[in-house]
Simulated scan of single mutants.
Amino acid sequence: MQRVGNGKDRRHSRSQRLLKQSFAELMREKGFTAMTVKDIADRADVNRGTFYEHFPDKFALLEQSIRDKFIQLLEREIPPDYGWHPEHIRVLVQTVLEHVRTLYGRCSPIDTVNPLFEYSVRDELANLLRRWLGQFRADRPDWPVSVDTMALMTSWSIFGAAVAWSKGYEEISVTEMTDRILTVLTEGTVRFAGDPSADQIR
Rank of each mutant, 00 (worst) to 15 (best):
M1S: 12
G49A: 07
V4G: 04
T183P: 10
F70C: 01
V91K: 15
E187C: 01
R43H: 10
F117V: 01
T33M: 07
I78C: 05
P109N: 09
T50W: 13
L125C: 05
R28Q: 10
K167F: 00
D68M: 03
R131E: 13
S22E: 10
D9I: 02
W84T: 01
P80Y: 06
L125V: 04
Y119Q: 11
A126N: 14
P109V: 03
S173C: 06
A151T: 05
V100M: 08
D9Y: 02
P79R: 04
A41M: 07
A193I: 03
S157I: 02
E63H: 01
F159G: 05
I201Y: 15
Q21L: 06
I78L: 08
S146C: 01
V147M: 02
G168L: 04
E124I: 04
K8W: 13
G134A: 05
R101L: 03
G105W: 13
S108V: 00
S166V: 04
W132K: 02
M153D: 14
M150Y: 03
F136A: 08
V96W: 13
V147L: 00
G83H: 12
I181A: 00
F59Q: 09
K38C: 00
E176L: 03
G188P: 15
E77D: 13
R3M: 05
I201M: 14
S13Y: 10
I89F: 09
R140V: 00
A24M: 04
L26Y: 15
V147K: 03
L26H: 14
S15L: 00
R130Q: 06
A161G: 14
R14K: 12
F32L: 03
V163W: 07
D179W: 09
T95C: 08
F159L: 12
V4M: 08
G49D: 15
P144L: 01
A44Q: 10
Q72R: 13
G160K: 06
